[in-house]
Design a protein around this nucleic acid. Structure first.
Length: 603
RNA sequence: GGUCCGGUAGCUCAGUUGAAUAGAGCAACUGCCUUCUAAGCAGUAGGUCAUUGGUUUGAAUCCAAUCCGGAUCACCA
């Protein structure tokens, strides 16, 4: 079935008003200087033209100008505008019932409503980026949810999306876990201890730090300074030696490294599966850490980089307000930024992507600014398509999470806790009847994870946020479960009205209907969904989707309280409201999907 | 110190391409379940939009300065 999506009504009105002004005042640029807003609820109308800019330019009174434009719109908008009123320089336009009903009729069966047609652009979203020395924590959850959501939003707005992940699987931190395991594990494995692999390996990372601290204390007690002790501590030396051996390809070290990483990956897989993250391509730093060296040579030849006497290679970014940045060490090895440039090139070569989005915390703002600048200066293809989706740290009421102080909120634990709270609430409300045990388990997962995802996504990414495990996660008000509940209510109505499950089999008669205020509010809101998706994609902002879906759900709840659907006052109203319920159901489900949140049939 | 980000109700946050009386949720208080799920709805109360100055017919929004908080400026990643 083909659903031609009409132009968004805001844009349509904008074009109509422009045409009206150009018709009235052909020799001016006035048609460019007005604003259009959604009309405030206390006034009559759907959209409002702010006249002040025009008033100034055309030297007319707002009332006179408003009347001229309003009359012309009614005449020439092909029936879209049915009435208007002017209050203090605001021209409030009433969009006709006919338009709204026509819109509803054309879209209520459209299961992919809101999705834009392919735009031919390819974008890669890199997110998650775990280290293999410890399990995922709350901060990773914000990252994963953001990455998944922005990928879905871009997909819905017409991009071809490739999700990727770079795993930091090498380096001194992994060696620390390895050394600790060699010394303290006595052959234990996740299988023998019954632990999840990432947690198991993380424990040895902690054990390393404990042992290191003990050595430091001892060395300092014997008279060494803190700096000397840090240099001399045998366990740290062992870890550093192990890193050297790893780079040299020492078979025992490599084999231990592979073994421990495989435990971690098994653990990660479980977590990813649970929280709903996945990737089309996974990059490993052990494969990419040597990338970029060739680029350094090319950059030197192009004169983008300069080499100092000691052999180190730099780029001078002071003209761009930044500093000088090292891109290759004296000893010829590459640094972090160099690998990233190399990987950026590789991504482009492999996938011919137009945009490359990095979901990474805001502590790396500077790094990505530099990365993009270097890519631009090197003239790499699509360098301007590099975008750092930066997000703020998640803090606890007690302050920052610190692994050393054991105040890190573990991702698996948190998800378990959320699901347990969902179960507890559901039981307290007595809403467990009519479900099988399996269904209940899945319902608790849906609600618990929904609450968590919604909570982390509803906030503007770039803001730091406080996570209060006791109070912050609520199941009422502006939350995931509220939206899920609203969805369940739409489904309940659709079940009881005995409509066919298959949307294409629906044939509701709604043409010519008139709209009550809440019916109108619903349709107005539904009509905005495609625009919201477009805007969320442009601004890389899942929070605007969360905000929109919440408001839609909220309006629907008011609608249900005020108006009966199944027992409507007339058959005409019943059909109209069913169409609204069908489309709302659809839109909530699609919107939540963009946030990576499932919706329940019943709750 | 340089650069960047943030500061809106008791708390958590929307609103920041300038526009009508600054909006939600939580917490507090009032009502509403013989009526499609009360995880809901309706309402009350709660604000010097960090401060000061400027631009403008109009500023939470733009500009400048100041204060507070954070990040960053490694031959770490």
């Amino acid at each position: 079935m083909l659903f031609l999506r009409p132009m968004a009504i805001v844009q349509q009105i904008q074009a109509d008003v422009k045409a009206a002004i150009n018709g009235l005042y052909p020799d001016t640029t006035a048609a460019e200087s007005f604003q259009i807003n959604q009309t405030k609820p206390e006034f009559e109308g759907d959209y409002t033209i702010v006249l002040f800019g025009l008033v100034k330019l055309l030297k007319k009174s707002p009332d006179q100008l408003g009347k001229e434009i309003g009359d012309r719109l009614i005449e020439q908008s092909e029936g879209r505008i049915s009435a208007y009123n002017i209050i203090k320089g605001f021209l409030n336009l009433v969009v006709s019932d006919n338009y709204w009903v026509g819109f509803l009729e054309s879209q209520y069966k459209n299961s992919s409503y809101g999705n834009h047609s392919p735009n031919g652009q390819k974008v890669m979203v890199e997110y998650s980026s775990p280290n293999t020395n410890k399990p995922l924590h709350l901060g990773h959850l914000r990252n994963n949810f953001l990455g998944w959501s922005i990928a879905s939003i871009l997909e819905a707005s017409g991009y071809e999306v490739i999700k990727s992940c770079i795993v930091n699987d090498r380096g001194i931190h992994i060696c620390k876990s390895m050394i600790a395991w060699q010394r303290f594990a006595d052959g234990a494995t996740p299988a023998t201890t019954g632990q999840k692999g990432d947690h198991f390996v993380g424990e040895y990372y902690v054990k390393f730090n404990d042992a290191y601290k003990a050595e430091l204390d001892q060395l300092m007690a014997s008279g060494l300074s803190k700096e000397e002790a840090e240099k001399e501590a045998p366990i740290m030396k062992a870890a550093q030696q192990m890193l050297v051996d790893w780079e040299a390809g020492d078979p025992t070290v490599i084999s231990l490294w592979k073994k421990m990483n495989s435990w971690v990956y098994a653990g990660f897989d479980e977590t990813y599966k649970r929280i709903g993250s996945n990737f089309e391509i996974v990059y490993y730093e052990s494969n990419t850490y040597l990338l970029g060296k060739k680029t350094v040579q090319e950059g030197l030849e192009k004169g983008v980089f300069t080499q100092k006497e000691d052999g180190s290679v730099w780029i001078d970014l002071t003209a761009d307000g930044l500093d000088e940045k090292l891109v290759q060490r004296r000893d010829g090895t590459s640094v972090y930024i160099t690998q990233d440039i190399g990987l950026a090139q590789q991504k482009y070569e492999e996938y011919k992507i137009d945009q490359s989005i990095y979901v990474v915390g805001d502590e790396q703002n500077y790094h990505f600014k530099v990365l993009k600048l270097i890519a631009e200066k090197l003239g790499l293809p699509k360098a301007d398509g590099i975008y750092h989706l930066s997000y703020g740290m998640v803090e606890l009421p007690t302050g920052k999470m610190k692994s050393r102080e054991g105040t890190v909120v573990d991702a698996d634990d948190l998800v378990d806790e959320m699901v347990a709270i969902a179960e507890q609430h559901t039981r307290e409300l007595g809403k467990v009847e009519g479900f099988t045990g399996e269904e209940l388990k899945s319902l608790y997962d849906t609600i618990g994870l929904g609450a968590l995802k919604f909570y982390l996504l509803r906030v503007d990414p770039k803001k730091r946020m406080v996570f209060n495990p006791e109070e912050s996660i609520d199941f009422h008000g502006y939350t995931g479960p509220f939206v899920q509940y609203s969805y369940a209510r739409t489904k309940s109505i659709l079940r009881k009205s005995a409509l066919p499950e298959d949307l294409s089999k629906l044939s509701l008669q709604i043409a010519g209907a008139t709209l009550l205020p809440l019916e109108r509010e619903m349709v107005v809101s539904l009509e905005q969904f495609p625009t919201i998706i477009e805007q969320a994609a442009k601004e890389h902002s899942p929070s605007s989707v969360a905000n929109y879906i919440y408001n839609l759900a909220k309006t629907f709840n008011s609608f249900l309280t005020e108006l009966s659907v199944i027992r409507a006052e007339s058959e005409e109203k019943r059909q109209l409201r069913l169409a609204i319920a069908v489309m709302t159901s659809n839109t909530i489900s699609s919107g939540m999907k963009l946030l990576g949140i499932r919706v329940p049939e019943k709750m």
